[in-house]
Nucleic acid binder design. Structure first.
Length: 465
RNA sequence: GUCCCCAUCGUCUAGCCUGGUCCAGGACACCGGCCUUUCACGCCGGCAACACCGGUUCAAAUCCGGUUGGGGACGCCA
């Protein structure tokens, strides 16, 4: 059975780059009917926070990523790491080292200036020191030969073992280092498929060495290329919004985010739009690309519009409510919201945009956009508006069909074309020059509101004239 | 500096493994047009790429080598 995992370190919000590797692991596990494990890598006490943990859970939940095992916390697994340290010391695969950080630093400086790779020189390698207070544990890494990553995405990557050094497994305070804890965790959690960011390739040979020292079979490794910003450097804050929750707040649909992030670096022929289930059905590791990709907010936005359009208005009601609320609108009538969404869902790229454009349906007193009023609410349309009010007042069924005939009647009486009448009416009803169809807007607004807004517009014109 | 990775339209990518069907296809953005009561949606059309050099071959975007460019990693961070 395939077992994948996502191991965030809780030092901040969930970054879209990290979210993408979480998604790859999750999708692959779901596709293979395997298991997906969540593990919190909180060994860095200085930077790990509970808020970050909560933020990560919230973002994963929003994305619809669930896990079958965990969350595990590394800080609760210290005994496990220690027991394997003892074993590695016993078998001679690791040793205690008492070199100070300062000494190491001068070692690095020397190596750097002489053109070499900064690494530990092995001072304590053969001293067979015992567990002295303040000692670190280092792996006794091979001095020659090669270590090969058989990467499912990038192919074989070969490292000369001379490039590697006796890196630290366990810090002087007894806390395991990242590379060591990861191996022990993946090994004991039976993780057999490790899909992670490109930035980890250099860690992988080290981890392979630990697996070998432990005489443990290797998992399958797959390193996915990074997500870049427009300037081709690692995607970060200066390129725009980077946290998953920011996109949630801007009114993106989780499925759109999922779709976009997966398609950034993975493909399935020419297909651009995927539902969650389609992704689970067809996702594979073979079609993950080898080159890094630029995060394009425009394309995400367009995809979000596609997902909004593909979602039934009914299902958009609940997600839209918080956005209406943030504009001070609380509507109890879900059926009304549904109807409002029907008029807006082909013209909204985000839920936030949809909420903004829905405001005129709900507020009591709409304001006119300055340019709109200036251009369309003019004395020339006064007569048409009054005739329309007359027509509307005698309607007993405020249906779109009846509305249309009412408009026709006014067109006949005034000799004006529909366009000449519709725009002023639109401004009167919505305050803006762009809106859903004038008949649907009117029908939804209802007789009373339409008539009162039209009357208000006539008064506005009279006052100005 | 050392090591590693990458290289098709502005961007995401298909094609590359299994050379010819590719004077390179799709999508976003952009530009025209149609539809039309506005804005969208939809539809039609356009712009635009195989980084460079050399090799292999009858034939290379596809295979090989090099160059250049970009990215990443070199912590008692993860």
């Amino acid at each position: 059975m395939i077992v994948t995992r996502f191991p965030p370190s809780p030092t901040g919000y969930l970054h879209v780059g990290n979210a993408r590797t979480a998604i790859f692991n999750w999708l692959y596990a779901r596709h293979m009917k395997g298991k997906f494990v969540l593990r919190i890598e909180d060994t860095d006490a200085k930077r790990s926070t509970q808020e970050a943990i909560d933020a990560i859970f919230e973002a994963l939940e929003w994305l619809g990523i669930d896990w079958d095992e965990g969350p595990y916390y590394q800080t609760q697994r210290l005994e496990i790491y220690n027991s394997y340290i003892e074993r590695l010391i016993e078998t001679g695969e690791a040793y205690y080292c008492t070199c100070s950080p300062e000494e190491i630093e001068t070692m690095r400086q020397k190596a750097m200036t002489s053109g070499g790779k900064p690494k530990y020189d092995g001072t304590c390698r053969n001293k067979e020191l015992s567990n002295i207070e303040g000692a670190v544990v280092r792996l006794k890494a091979p001095l020659s030969g090669t270590t090969i990553i058989e990467d499912v995405i990038k192919g074989n990557i070969v490292f000369q073992n001379e490039e590697l050094d006796d890196f630290i497994l366990c810090r002087s305070d007894g806390i395991p280092t990242y590379n060591y804890a990861v191996v022990i965790d993946d090994m004991t959690m039976l993780v057999n498929t490790v899909i992670r960011g490109d930035d980890h390739v250099m860690n992988t040979p080290k981890q392979i060495l630990i697996y070998k020292a432990l005489d443990c079979p290797l998992p399958v490794f797959g390193h996915v290329p990074m997500v870049l910003g427009t300037d081709k450097s690692r995607f970060s804050k200066r390129h725009g919004a980077v946290s998953v929750s920011a996109y949630k707040d801007m009114g993106y649909l989780p499925d759109a985010m999922l779709n976009y992030l997966v398609r950034l670096g993975w493909s399935h022929g020419d297909q651009e739009f995927f539902t969650r289930q389609e992704l689970i059905d067809v996702f594979d590791l073979e079609h993950i690309g080898r080159s890094a990709g630029v995060f394009d907010p425009e394309k995400l936005l367009s995809l979000n519009a596609d997902h909004i359009r593909a979602t039934l208005p009914d299902e958009l009601v609940a997600p839209l409510k918080p956005f209406l609320k943030s504009h001070g609108i609380e509507v109890k009538d879900s059926d009304l919201i549904k109807k409002v969404i029907e008029t807006l869902h082909a013209r909204s790229k985000t839920l936030e945009e949809m909420a903004e454009n829905a405001l005129f349906y709900f507020v009591d007193d709409i304001g006119y956009e300055e340019k709109a009023a200036k251009k369309f609410l003019k004395p020339a349309v006064l007569e048409a508006l009054r005739l329309l009010i007359d027509q509307f007042e005698i309607l007993d069924n405020f249906s779109e069909e009846n509305l249309e005939s009412a408009f026709k009647a006014v067109m006949d009486q005034t000799g004006l074309k529909l366009g000449k009448i519709a725009q002023p009416v639109r401004v009167a009803l919505t305050g803006k020059t762009a809106s859903p169809g004038i008949f649907e807007v009117s029908a939804l607004l209802g007789q009373d509101k339409v008539i009162s807004r039209l009357k208000k517009a006539t008064r506005y014109i009279e006052d100005k004239g």
